[in-house]
């Protein structure tokens, strides 16, 4: 069974997709959402196989939703849009398909066929997430789970990132958020202007580094302004020094 969710801020537009999806025997509609934020939460919670995502929405646009997803675990995305000439470039790069409103049933079925194809051959997935990130630029903002909802934090507020199995701890001055993402993917999203890897499972905000103390075998002890102490692995010293001009 293919699990699909539908995201559009206009009810009639959702209705049309849900009716047509409902008539397919191999597809189950797992939910419908009217804005980007609740869609993002639902994707994290329900891990659908495919998301029909409207581009123009209040709060987070469809592209912004895509940019916040994790590349490896992202559902397939079918963008639905009225008219977005410049966004089409991004769709071509990574989305499974896109539907231009208004579209007819035949066009809709073609999009579904492509979804089935991609699901059957996951190795051919090209990521719409990467394309969306490229399109909207390096993300300065990160959505993190906080309580029952999501909170938007500025990437400058992040002091450091620590990987823990399939999760990443995102540390800010007064909070620590747990994100179900890989460190690699998160760094890719946040861009390498601000963050630098210090060992296999940690990265720090360069602006937050307070000092370094040499340890054995070329490792260092790295102190952040907040007082937190981390280990800088020998393998990553050269990158850090070149980035900090040291």
């Amino acid at each position: 069974m293919i699990r699909a969710i539908v995201v559009d801020d206009e009810e009639p537009a959702r209705g049309k997709l849900i009716r047509w999806l409902g008539s397919e025997t191999d597809i189950a509609v797992a939910g419908e959402y009217a804005d980007g934020l609740s869609a993002l939460q639902a994707i994290g919670r329900d891990s659908p196989d495919v998301v029909f995502l409207d581009v123009q929405m209040p709060g987070l646009s469809g592209l912004q939703v895509a940019a916040q997803l994790e590349v490896a675990t992202s559902p397939l995305l079918v963008f639905v849009t009225a008219y977005d000439a410049h966004a089409l470039a991004a769709f071509d790069l990574g989305a499974v398909d896109y539907l231009l409103k208004p579209y007819d049933e035949e066009r809709f079925r073609r999009a579904l066929d492509r979804v089935r194809e991609r699901l059957a051959a996951p190795e051919h997935r090209r990521s719409a997430v990467l394309a969306a990130r490229r399109h909207i630029g390096v993300s300065e903002r990160l959505l993190v789970p906080a309580g029952d909802g999501l909170r938007m934090i500025d990437s400058a507020q992040i002091h450091c990132l620590e990987a823990d199995d399939n999760y990443v701890h995102v540390h800010t001055a007064d909070h620590s958020y747990l994100l179900r993402r890989t460190l690699r993917d998160l760094l890719q999203q946040l861009g390498d202007q601000r963050f630098v890897r210090i060992h296999k499972s940690a990265a720090v905000n360069i602006a937050e580094i307070d000092g370094l103390t040499p340890l054995f075998k070329g490792d260092y002890e790295l102190r952040l302004r907040s007082g937190r102490v981390l280990r800088l692995s020998r393998r990553f010293t050269s990158e850090l020094f070149s980035r900090t001009g040291g």
């Binding site: 206009e10 009639p12 537009a13 209705g15 049309k16 009225a82 008219y83 409103k101 208004p102 007819d104």
Partner: peptide, 18 residues
Amino acid sequence: RPHFLFNTLNTVSSLMQV
């Protein structure tokens, strides 16, 4: 604006089925 026009047409396309 194209958005208005196309979204309205899509609304019609949806409503006419129900």
